Amino acid sequence: QQELERLCDRLRLQSPAHRQSMEQQALEHLYRRLVRGGAAVLERYENQLRQQAEKLEMLSPLKILGRGYALVYQGEELVRRAEQVQPGDILRVQLAEGEITAEVKA
């Protein structure tokens, strides 16, 4: 009787329905792993993108102007050194909000 039950159990384990059920469970497990892995990769790339965007924003000319800096132009040329201008020159000063015109005095 025990031998017959053992053989029946083995036969049941070898049945196509049982094998299909086992393969379906394995497939579902792999699918869950894929979804979790994909979400982790997506989150990592989102964090990297956010960090890069923050760095880029820190270097934005408008952000720099917002911190109190200004861009000074003589005509269309950006003034980088005091030696570029002479007394009497008219300069255009770009601020974070608007621009002004200034005359060099000394």
Rank of each mutant, 00 (worst) to 15 (best):
Q1M: 12
Q1C: 09
Q2S: 14
E3R: 03
E3T: 08
L4K: 12
E5L: 11
C8W: 11
D9C: 02
R10G: 03
R10A: 07
L11P: 02
L11M: 12
L13D: 15
L13S: 15
Q14P: 07
S15N: 00
S15I: 05
S15W: 00
S15T: 06
P16G: 10
A17M: 10
R19A: 13
Q20G: 15
S21D: 07
S21T: 03
S21V: 06
M22N: 07
M22A: 14
M22E: 09
M22S: 01
Q24L: 05
Q24V: 06
Q24S: 15
Q25W: 04
A26M: 13
A26K: 15
L27D: 02
L27P: 00
E28P: 01
H29N: 06
H29G: 08
H29S: 09
L30K: 09
Y31Q: 00
Y31M: 02
Y31W: 08
Y31S: 01
R32K: 13
R32N: 09
L34F: 03
L34N: 01
L34R: 01
V35A: 00
V35I: 15
R36P: 00
R36H: 12
G37T: 00
G37W: 00
G38A: 11
G38L: 14
G38Q: 13
A39W: 11
A40L: 06
A40V: 05
A40G: 02
V41Q: 14
V41C: 10
L42C: 11
E43H: 11
R44G: 01
R44L: 07
Y45R: 15
Y45N: 05
E46Y: 08
E46P: 07
Q48W: 00
L49N: 09
R50T: 08
Q51C: 09
Q51D: 15
A53Q: 14
A53N: 13
A53C: 11
K55T: 03
K55V: 03
E57K: 13
E57R: 13
E57W: 10
L59R: 12
L59D: 15
L59Y: 12
P61R: 07
P61F: 06
L62I: 13
K63Y: 02
I64Q: 15
I64P: 09
G66C: 08
R67G: 08
Y69V: 05
A70S: 14
A70L: 06
A70Y: 10
A70K: 14
L71I: 08
V72K: 02
Y73S: 10
Q74K: 15
Q74N: 10
G75K: 06
E76G: 03
E77M: 05
L78R: 12
V79W: 10
V79E: 05
R80E: 08
R80A: 05
R80M: 08
A82K: 11
A82G: 05
E83C: 07
Q84N: 03
Q84T: 09
V85W: 04
V85K: 05
V85P: 07
P87A: 08
P87E: 14
P87C: 06
G88Q: 05
D89T: 00
L91I: 04
L91K: 10
L91N: 00
L91M: 01
R92D: 05
R92C: 07
V93P: 14
V93I: 15
Q94L: 09
Q94S: 05
Q94H: 13
A96Y: 12
A96P: 01
E97R: 11
G98Q: 10
I100N: 07
T101V: 13
A102S: 14
A102G: 11
E103D: 02
V104S: 06
K105A: 10
K105F: 05
A106Y: 04
A106M: 04
A106P: 02
A106R: 12
